[in-house]
Amino acid sequence: MLSVRGLTVVHGKPDGTRKQVVHGVDLDVHPGEVVGLVGESGSGKTTIGRAVLGLTPVRSGGITFAGERIERAGAARRRALSRDLQVVFQDPYTSLNPSRTVGDTLGEPLSGRGTGAQEARARITELLDRVRLPADSADRLPREFSDGQRQRVTIAQALALRPRLVICDEPVSALDLTTQRTVLELLLEIQEETGVAYLFVTHDLAVVRFMSHRVAVIRGGELVETGDARRVTSEPRHPYTRALMLAAPVADVAEQRRRREATRAQAPA
């Protein structure tokens, strides 16, 4: 469904110089698949997602979605692509218009596609039920919800047009651990029921192990390891992937101490 080949992205800096942040990346997402893209802050993982969405310019390489090259698609074509290609961002509050009700937010993409009022209301009710929010949520403003509930609203917004692929950009990193688990389970349930594919961007190997079929590990704008999620997260081959795994927090104090010592031992002199 999604094929990225030789993707290179260059960002301008305040002093007028240019910095290459993604270096010739190859990445695929198949229909109905969850691919985890994992790396530390500044690794380029979010930039790849933004390039797929057309939110950052591509220096070179190709992005093909459903057989169509889209890396240089114009605004009109991007609007048309939004039916099949959607996004869930990290901060649910800034993703929602604070002055619009949830019903208005969910109804906007539907009315933009010519959906009638009665059909739109039924679809909004269906979406709220799918993300486990009460029907009266449609009449409330974003500030009346918790962070976890707001993220469910943004998930419903992304699902409104029944997309084929959703870019999930750190969708749970701003949430507490209990809420993270609830949202991740919801995303998996939706994926299993609808067959939507996810490109799941995160810094957390434990999250991608839970969510993904395959994993791509990125460091400094380059992919350093790819493969089956269970293999990569249990038997990583690249030192950077092993360092990410050791950095993940665990509940066991002794194991956490062992991981810290192992991380220090692997650090360069």
Rank of each mutant, 00 (worst) to 15 (best):
H238T: 15
R237P: 00
A248I: 00
A229I: 05
E222D: 12
A243K: 09
P236D: 06
R230M: 10
L223G: 07
R237V: 08
S234E: 10
A243L: 10
A251V: 08
A248V: 08
Y240R: 14
E235V: 07
R242I: 00
A229F: 05
V232D: 11
V253W: 06
L246W: 01
P239D: 10
T241W: 01
E235K: 14
D252A: 01
V253K: 04
R231C: 00
D252C: 01
P239E: 12
E225M: 09
A247W: 02
L223E: 10
Y240D: 09
Y240W: 06
H238M: 12
D228N: 14
G220S: 13
R242F: 01
D228S: 05
P249M: 01
G220W: 05
E222K: 14
V253Q: 07
P239I: 09
A229N: 12
A251S: 07
V250K: 03
R230H: 13
V232Q: 05
A248H: 05
T233H: 06
Y240E: 10
L246K: 03
V224Q: 12
R242K: 15
H238Q: 15
G220Q: 13
T241F: 02
P236L: 03
D252M: 03
P236A: 06
Y240I: 04
G221S: 13
A251C: 00
T233F: 05
E225H: 12
L246Q: 04
A247D: 06
V250Y: 02
V224A: 08
T233E: 05
P239Q: 09
R237L: 09
G221K: 12
H238V: 12
P239F: 08
R231L: 11
R230Y: 04
P236F: 04
E235H: 15
A248L: 01
T241K: 01
P249R: 02
L244M: 06
R230V: 07
A247N: 05
A243Q: 14
V224P: 15
A251P: 09
R242C: 00
E222G: 11
P239M: 10
R242A: 13
V232A: 02
T241P: 11
A247S: 15
D228K: 03
D252L: 01
G227D: 13
E235Q: 14
L244K: 08
V224S: 09
M245K: 07
V250T: 13
R242N: 02
R237S: 12
T241R: 02
A247Y: 04
D252W: 02
A243T: 06
M245H: 02
D228Y: 06
H238D: 15
S234N: 10
G220A: 09
A243S: 15
R242M: 04
V250D: 03
V224L: 07
E222T: 14
D252F: 01
T226G: 08
H238A: 12
L246F: 01
G221V: 13
T233M: 03
E222Y: 07
Y240Q: 11
M245I: 15
L244Y: 09
D252V: 02
L244N: 06
G220K: 07
A251Y: 00
A229D: 07
P249W: 03
V253F: 01
P249H: 03
Y240P: 10
D252K: 02
E222L: 07
E235F: 10
G227Y: 08
